[in-house]
């Protein structure tokens, strides 16, 4: 999958390229607005990550030019100005998502995957999720591990559903808070930590293979050993 990054800050751009490449994407990097637009018009990108403040053409102008030429690949904005007007402007122009600098890479990666998954809607309609010997039945709201039923609260079920539907992906705390509890702001609580710990006790205790892992400083991931 090809991703274009347009970012004029050399270090940021380089780290983003490295990070996304290591996450399995094909990444091109442009440092100015006109270069970015040129590349975007040529290559077949599935996603463009655009900085707002760019030399030559700013992010909004690049986006507007793309949409004018009937190119509708998803666009993720990076903005240092966390102003509401920017948000509104970006979404009006057809941006798919935005991240306010400074952001964590785990958060960016999770958002990139969310956007790309959205593009392939329809394939995720399975009613059961299965990772290793853990099964989650969305219709009957049941969870079974190694043939044994596990009782979960509604929120625990929601949390497990998120982790399983995106198994193998590192999910940062802020994304979990937003998806499971609809808390769309950074809070300084340890709610997610506690919730994961309790879920882990129910899911992994007594099993040799631990599915839920903590990646310090990045977030949480649910994966079967053969996934990694």
């Amino acid at each position: 999958m090809k991703i274009l990054i347009v970012e004029d800050e050399p270090k940021t751009g380089e780290y983003l390229r490295q990070g996304l490449s290591e996450a399995g994407f094909m990444v091109d990097l442009a440092q100015t607005g006109p270069d970015g637009l040129h590349l975007a018009l040529q290559g077949q990108y599935e996603l463009v990550i655009l900085d707002v403040m760019l030399p030559g053409l700013d992010g909004w102008q690049v986006l507007a030019s793309l949409r004018q030429r009937d190119l509708h690949m998803p666009v993720l904005f990076l903005t240092a100005r966390d102003q509401v007007e920017d948000r509104v402007k970006g979404l009006e122009l057809g941006a798919d998502d935005y991240l306010v600098k400074p952001f964590s890479f785990a958060e960016l990666l999770a958002r990139v995957r969310s956007i790309l998954r959205r593009g392939r809607a329809g394939t995720d309609l399975a009613t059961t999720l299965k990772v290793s010997d853990l099964e989650l039945d969305l219709l009957r709201r049941r969870v079974i591990r190694a043939g044994k039923r596990i009782d979960l609260t509604a929120k625990e079920f929601g949390l497990l559903e998120l982790l399983m539907s995106r198994h193998g992906e590192v999910l940062p705390r802020s994304l979990i808070a937003s998806q499971v509890w609809d808390m769309n702001f950074d809070s300084d609580t340890n709610v997610i930590e506690v919730a994961i710990r309790r879920l882990r006790v129910k899911i992994d205790e007594g099993h040799e293979v631990k599915l839920i892992k903590t990646l310090r400083g990045m977030g949480y991931v649910l994966e079967a050993p053969e996934d990694s």
Binding site: K155, A177, W181, D182, M183, T189, N190, V191, V194, A195, R198
Partner: peptide, 12 residues
């Protein structure tokens, strides 16, 4: 909604 969010921490 907020109480739901903090419930686990309170229980702990």
């Amino acid at each position: 909604a907020l109480l739901d969010f903090y419930e686990v921490v309170a229980e702990e």
